[in-house]
C-alpha cells in the first residue's frame, strides 16, 4: 500500500506541473501583450500596466516567469481583481459555501443514485428500471443551466416550495434546490453505473454461492452484491468532481449562491481576466488533488489495483 501511495503521488507531480503550466501558457504564450489583452475593451492606466507586468514578472523569460508565478500561487499570493479585491480573501470568504453545496450535492447524488441503480439492477426489465433509464437519459441531456432555470422557475416561482435565490448567509435549507440541480447529472451517471454493475455482479459465482448456501436476499444484496458493485461508482467519482466544478459555476451563478463558482461567474461577466485565471488555476489544483485522493481511496477499496505489476 505504501508503495502504491508513493507511486501515485509521484505520478501526480508531472500532472500538477503540466496542468498549471498549460493554463499559464494559454494566457501568456499567445501573441500580443497579455496585460493589454486582459483588459479587453478597457484602457488600463500606466500604473495598472506596470502593476500587472510586475505581478506576472513580464520582464523575465517565459519559463522563469512560470516558476515565479507558481511560487506566488504556493505562497498564497493570488493577486487582486480589477476592482482591487484580493483573490485570497475572496476565496477564503466563498470556499466554505461551495464546500457545503458540493457536500450536499454529493450526498444526494450517491444516496439517490445508488438506491435507484440498485433497485433497477435487481429488477432488470421492470417498470422502475424502464422509468429510471428514461429519466436518467433526460437528465443527461439537460444542460445544467437549463435544469437550473426550469427548477428555479417551477419549484421556486410557480410552486413556491423553495426560495428561488439563496438568501443572506446561505442557510442549508436554501441550498437544497441548487444542490439537487448540481447533483442531477452525476446522479444519472451513478444510477446507470450502479445498475450495470449490479446486473454484472448478481451473475457472479460468489453471489450464486451465497444464495446456494441458503443466505436470504436481505443479506446477499447489501453484503455481496452492493459492496462489489460500488467499485465503478468510486472510480467515477473523479469524473463526477470535474462535472461538479463546472456545474457549480453555473448553478451558483443562477441561484446566487455566494460561493467560488459564483465569483468565477461574476468575474467572467465583468471580463475580469486576472481573477478568472486565478480562480481557474485554484480549481484545477483542487481537481488534481481530489483526483489523487480518489485514486488512493480506490487503492484502499480494491486490492487488485495496488498490486499491478509493471
Amino acid at each position: 500500500m505504501a508503495w502504491y501511495i508513493v507511486r501515485r503521488v509521484l505520478q501526480g507531480i508531472p500532472v500538477f506541473l503540466g496542468s498549471t503550466f498549460l493554463i499559464y501558457a494559454m494566457v501568456f504564450a499567445m501573441p500580443g501583450n497579455p496585460v493589454l489583452r486582459m483588459f479587453g475593451d478597457r484602457t488600463p492606466t500606466e500604473a495598472q500596466i506596470a502593476a500587472l507586468e510586475a505581478k506576472f514578472h513580464l520582464d523575465q523569460n517565459f519559463f522563469t516567469r512560470y516558476f515565479l508565478y507558481l511560487g506566488d500561487v504556493f505562497q498564497g499570493n493570488l493577486g487582486t481583481t480589477f476592482n482591487g479585491q484580493s483573490v485570497n480573501e475572496i476565496l477564503i470568504r466563498t470556499f466554505p459555501t461551495t464546500l457545503r453545496l458540493a457536500l450536499l450535492a454529493v450526498i444526494i447524488q450517491l444516496v439517490v443514485g445508488v438506491t435507484a441503480g440498485l433497485i433497477s439492477g435487481l429488477r432488470k426489465g421492470g417498470i422502475f428500471d424502464h422509468a429510471a433509464l428514461i429519466v436518467t437519459l433526460i437528465l443527461i441531456s439537460l444542460p445544467v443551466f437549463v435544469l437550473a432555470f426550469v427548477a428555479q422557475w417551477f419549484f421556486g416561482i410557480e410552486l413556491g416550495w423553495f426560495r428561488p435565490t439563496v438568501g443572506q448567509g446561505a442557510p442549508w435549507s436554501d441550498l437544497i434546490l441548487p444542490a439537487i440541480v448540481l447533483a442531477a447529472l452525476n446522479m444519472a451517471y451513478v444510477v446507470r453505473l450502479t445498475r450495470g454493475s449490479v446486473i454484472e455482479t448478481s451473475q457472479a459465482d460468489f453471489v450464486r454461492m451465497a444464495y446456494g448456501k441458503g443466505l436470504p436476499s436481505r443479506r446477499v444484496v447489501p453484503v455481496h452484491v452492493l459492496r462489489n458493485s460500488l467499485i465503478p461508482v468510486t472510480t467515477n467519482l473523479a469524473a463526477d468532481f470535474g462535472i461538479l466544478i463546472v456545474g457549480a459555476t453555473v448553478t451558483e451563478g443562477i441561484f446566487n449562491v455566494p460561493g467560488v463558482g459564483n465569483e468565477l461567474f461574476k468575474a467572467i461577466n465583468r471580463h475580469d481576466t486576472p481573477e478568472i485565471v486565478s480562480i481557474v488555476t485554484i480549481l484545477v489544483i483542487v481537481y488534481v488533488f481530489v483526483n489523487l485522493l480518489i485514486d488512493l481511496l480506490y487503492g484502499v477499496l480494491d486490492p487488485r489495483i495496488r498490486y499491478v505489476k509493471k
Partner: peptide
C-alpha cells in the same frame, strides 16, 4: 502522460480561459 495533463483540466474551465483571452 501528455493526455493525463490535458485530462486534468476540466475542458469547460480551460475553454473559459481561452475564450476570455479572445474578447474581440
Amino acid at each position: 502522460r501528455i493526455g493525463d495533463i490535458f485530462f486534468a483540466i476540466p475542458y469547460i474551465l480551460a475553454a473559459v480561459v481561452i475564450m476570455s483571452m479572445f474578447l474581440h
